[in-house]
Amino acid sequence: MTAALEIRGLHVAYGARTVLSGIHLAVQRGEVLGLVGPNGCGKTTLIRAITRVTPWRSGEVLVGNVPVSGLSRRELAQRIAVVPQMTPLPIGYSALDVVLMGRTPHLGFLEHEGADDYAIAREALARAGAAALAERRVDELSGGEQQNVVLARALAQRTPVLLLDEPTAHLDIGHQMAVAALVRTLAHDHGVAVLAAIHDLTLASLSCDRVAVMAGGGLLAEGTPEQALTVENIERAYGVRVRVLHDAAPAPVIVPYSGGAIAP
């Protein structure tokens, strides 16, 4: 089966410093793959490199079996949508304006957004739970609301692949669960391939079909949450010892010892 997104031996360096050392990873259609790992392990760089915002030294990324290096920016944006980490949104634009920007790769240079694009944008806002924000100015929204608007923008791109970089960082637990549910619906019911960088290990465990653990620019482990999120893998990646509870939920729950790094 052809993977929706396949990363083949991706090597990225900033000057002499290697940031990604030959990563291999594949995301299937209809699957949510969680990317976990300590700060600075290369999660964000991987997402940037997949969309060619950061150039790579060697390797290749295939989207639906097509090499990304041969695609134009526009063709790439028709295939892969990104929800980046929180960045300030431009002042004065409404949430609907920003979500409509998600239609950019589908519009010709001289074309303006049509009724279809408005319908898609409004539906995306509603899916992201942000319908009520449509006419509000994005610079006056809270961080979590802005994140939902950016998520809606990515949905409005209608791509087969969705990359999320800490999509729940500014959300309360209720909204975290809503986003997790939305992402699972997109994958399981609509066949989208989702790659999501997530800090919260329990959230990754509960909301992802598979989890990849990164450390130091490489891949440490990959598999179902049970296989990947073990005490040993987490200790190797993060340098802390945690408890992994298997009976508390359908997937492992990761709990730190009080005091963090103090092992029992």
């Binding site: 940037r48 969309t51 060619r52 915002v53 134009s72 920016r73 526009r74 063709e75 790439l76 944006a77 028709q78 892969i80 949508a81 990104v82 980046p84 960045t87 949104l89 431009p90 920003v98 920007m101 998600g102 950019t104 790769p105 791109q157």
Partner: peptide, 12 residues
């Protein structure tokens, strides 16, 4: 938006 997001929305 910014350079990164504009590129990821298909702008050269």
């Amino acid at each position: 938006l910014d350079e990164q997001q504009a590129q990821q929305l298909g702008i050269d």
